[in-house]
Design a protein around this nucleic acid. Structure first.
Length: 824
DNA sequence: GCTCCGCCTTTATCA
DNA sequence: AAGGCGGAGC
């Protein structure tokens, strides 16, 4: 019998699993190419896997983890794997479990943010937080900064909530805090002095509310480890193998965190730990210390697209210098895309100088040409996308294997309008998220106020929601009462009796305070639960939420409102209740704080549901790490991609190119590139020019259904619109269409004349047929398709769809509510 | 304190 | 185009 250390087992030891058979261990490298195999099998302190797009890095990572566990080099609990999204984490766990045929429980596979929250909740008191601290999102940050800027009159110096937020975020990502910033600040610059004051107040308010923003989650964990080396040692001892995915997108704070976690534990602290009952046997080396954890990072500097949030490409470029003796493995063979798609990607990215040469290749053949299309308007472009999706669908491609990408969330509008009208099942991933709706934030604020009574932001939000007659004057009175008596806002609410306010207002405040207190009492575990450190005896999150919604009057206010939109809002709140029920069911014994944490840390990509039969719409950023049979890259125009804002930033255009590259390499078999000649922006229509990056794709690779040149010559009103120079792209060389040969190039097309039905057919207005009811057998007339007979009606409510056999236009599906039809 | 109206700005990308 | 904000009127 072999005994090995299990850090999660109270006894510290347990029997090792039976020795792996030879077949089992080779199973983990079977079917891998030599480089992948090396990446799985290499053992050493530091390993960098440079993984081109689609080169099978997730496979390599999961096999590497499984191999560490199966060879008994590590227990699951000694592994920390950092992924970019929670969904990627869940997938990775699942795949490791499949490989091991066993549960991988105890393994930490999570995002940077989730891992840090987990550590911080455990150690919160060490750094002066309550363990139920709130996580503030950007909107919360903005609200606070708006108040601060207003109080300080900082807008006169040009500060906006957005600018202050960006600057604070940038500093935190560099691990700067108020003091360190103050030390280097130029005190003769009034603007800098003002910023310092904003930063200071912002920090103070978050502290007082026991709240952290997203950037704090990482930075505070680093501070924790630096200020409390003993705490750090516990995690350094625990995690023996650390693996980081998407390493090219780590920022300095994340890099510092990894550095902290991979530090060795010195011999004297090992002795100390042992005296405190921490089992360190079998972990120490000859010096008596615990060596640093082994580090594996995976990344591709060509896919670095998060410089705006502090990602530092140097982390990956200089990995070999940071970790001397590091092994580097390069994965270039692509298993995802056709050669045509890869050639386009290679051609585009090769325009970024200052990069390590890397060429993706596949053994799977050229595949189809890339399809290009230039619409006259964004709606025209969207119609092309919708029509092509229908063609793909009829050819047997499932909707869920199709994705549409764009640079900015605002671009979804035209796409959605057309998709709704075409009765295409689609889903916007991310975008205006459910949890960002005002009514959901209100309901969540009730939960937050219960979980973290110090959170003044949440309390102020619900103070007069629903309307209780508590206005700004009362709110200010409460706040100053709290300040004068050194009370929290919540305590001040409880003692509102003594404020000399009107009886109605006073009653409203104390009522709210009572409701919150009662909900808090519901959520306290039983004595037995507390003793065991579990949540036993506490009410479920859904029960607490229902209690709060009913007792606060929030749900009634929405239901009884005469504002028609409140009906939808009430439904949304009910949807939230349903979500808490799901949460309770899927996470038995989980607490309210667990729920709030999960909600705070969902990423856009986490919402993706593989089982849904819908087309996915998302930003290029969200698309990272995903792949689809068919990909539509839309809005390929100067000003959008590259985005205007990027022009002023150093390295901006190069990063935008990488974004384009990421988009291209998501496609397996079919890639569509589209743009619009004109696009409505800020309420007016602007002429758009094709993106400079389109030029970088060798011409033979694209089959233009309608090229920019053709669109111009057919468009009529502006025969030389490609020459029209607008504000951006002043840099000459990059601006497109300034030279005749560019025009000519795009005037050449191999396909037949563009389909007339796409052009200008769609306008921005949506009609509404109200409650028009149709049944199979009805005759209708359609503006474009003429007369036809309804064969079937599917769907419900506003999403009812009529299947119509038109006399001349064939079979069509129409959304009854808005289709341009009339019943005959 | 609430509500309505008109003006004004605003838009990148994310955890 | 749409949401946020401030002022006017109740």
């Amino acid at each position: 019998m072999t005994l090995i250390l299990d850090p999660d087992d109270p006894a510290g030891w347990r029997e090792a699993p039976s020795a792996p058979s030879a077949t089992a261990s080779s199973r983990l490298t079977d079917g891998l190419n030599p480089e992948q195999r090396e990446a799985v099998e290499y053992r050493g302190q530091a390993l960098l896997i440079v993984a081109g797009a689609g080169s099978g890095k997730t496979r390599v990572l999961t096999h590497r983890i499984a191999s560490l566990i199966e060879s008994r080099e590590a227990w699951p609990s000694q592994i920390l794997a950092i992924t970019f999204t929670n969904k990627a984490a869940a997938e990775m766990r699942e795949r490791v479990e499949v490989l091991l045929g066993d549960s991988a429980s105890g393994m930490w596979i999570s995002t940077f943010h989730s891992a840090c929250v987990r550590i911080l909740r455990r150690e919160a008191e060490a750094i002066g937080l309550t363990s139920t601290f709130t996580i503030y999102d950007s909107a919360d940050q903005r609200t606070i900064l708006k108040r601060i800027i207003k109080e300080l009159d900082a807008d006169t110096l040009g500060f906006t909530p957005a600018s202050a937020q960006a600057k604070i975020s940038k500093l935190k990502n560099e691990l700067a805090d108020v003091e360190s910033y103050a030390r280097n600040a130029n005190t003769s610059d009034p603007q800098e002095v003002m910023f310092l004051e904003i930063f200071r107040q912002y920090t103070r308010r978050l502290r007082e509310a026991s709240a952290l923003d997203f950037d704090d989650l990482i930075a505070e964990t680093v501070y924790l480890f630096r200020a409390f080396p003993k705490v750090a040692s516990l995690y350094q001892r625990r995690f023996r193998h650390i693996l980081v995915d998407e390493y090219q997108d780590t920022n300095h704070a994340q890099y510092a965190l990894i550095r902290e976690l991979t530090q060795p534990v010195p011999a004297d602290r090992v002795v100390e730990m042992e005296q405190h009952g921490v089992n360190v046997a079998a972990l120490t080396d000859a010096s008596g210390g615990i060596p640093g954890a082994s580090l594996t990072v995976v990344g591709d500097s060509d896919q670095s697209i998060y410089a705006f949030r502090g990602a530092d490409i140097r982390n990956i470029v200089e990995f070999e210098r940071d970790f001397p003796g590091a092994k580097v493995v390069l994965l270039e063979q692509n298993y995802r895309s056709t050669q045509n798609i890869l050639s386009a990607a290679n051609a585009v990215i090769s325009n970024n100088f200052d990069r390590k040469e890397k060429k993706l290749w596949t053994a799977d053949g050229d595949g189809d040409q890339i399809t290009g299309y230039t619409g006259y308007t964004a709606h025209d472009e969207a119609q092309f996308v919708a029509d092509e999706i229908e063609v793909l669908h009829r050819a047997g491609v499932a909707y869920r294997d199709i994705a549409v990408f764009y640079r900015t969330n605002a671009q979804t509008r035209a796409l959605e309008e057309i998709f709704v009208r075409s009765a295409l099942p689609y889903r916007v991933v991310g975008g205006t998220k459910f949890y960002e709706r005002a009514e959901i934030k209100d309901a969540m604020a009730y939960l937050i106020a219960v979980a973290n009574p110090l959170d003044e932001l949440a309390l102020r939000r619900i103070l007069n929601t629903p309307k209780r007659g508590i206005g700004p004057a009362t709110e200010t009175a409460l706040a100053s009462f709290a300040e004068q008596n050194a009370l929290s806002f919540r305590q001040a609410m409880r003692s509102a009796d003594g404020l000399g306010l009107g009886p109605k207002v006073t009653g409203a405040i104390t009522n709210l305070a009572t409701v919150l207190d009662e909900a808090a009492a519901m959520l306290v575990p039983s004595a037995a639960g507390i003793a065991a450190g579990t949540n036993e005896g506490a009410s479920k999150v859904s029960d607490a939420l229902v209690f709060l919604l009913e007792r606060s009057g929030l749900i009634d206010a929405l239901r009884n409102s005469r504002d028609p939109q409140d009906e939808t809002r009430a439904e949304n709140v009910e949807e939230l209740v349903a979500q808490t029920r799901d949460f309770d069911r899927e996470n038995p014994g989980a607490s309210l704080v667990d729920f709030l944490t999960q909600v705070s840390l969902v990423a856009a990509a986490d919402e993706l549901d593989d089982a849904s039969g819908t087309v996915s719409l998302m930003t290029l950023h969200t698309a990272k790490g995903l792949e689809y049979h068919a990909v539509f890259l839309t809005g390929l125009e100067e000003g959008l991609l590259p985005h205007q804002m990027s022009a002023s930033e150093p390295g901006g255009p190069a990063e935008e190119r990488r974004l384009f590259y990421v988009g291209i390499t998501r496609a397996r078999k079919r890639l569509y590139l589209s743009l619009a000649m004109s696009r409505a922006q800020f309420g007016e229509v602007a002429v758009a020019m094709p993106s400079r990056y389109l030029q970088e794709i060798p011409e033979g690779l694209i089959d233009w259904r309608q090229s920019p040149g053709m669109a111009t010559s057919r468009g009529g009103t502006q025969p030389r619109a490609l020459n029209a120079r607008r504000g951006y792209g002043q840099g000459g060389g990059g601006a497109w269409g300034t030279r005749d040969r560019d025009l000519e190039r795009f005037s050449v097309t191999k396909s037949a004349a563009p389909k007339a039905e796409w052009a200008n057919r769609v306008t921005g207005t949506v009609r509404d047929n109200g409650d028009l009811t149709l049944a199979a057998g009805d005759r209708i007339r359609h503006v474009d398709f003429g007369e036809g007979r309804v064969t079937q009606v599917t769907g419900e409510g506003t999403k009812r769809i009529a299947h119509v056999a038109f006399d001349t236009a064939g079979q069509k599906k129409l959304l009854i509510k808005i289709a341009p039809i009339e019943k005959l």
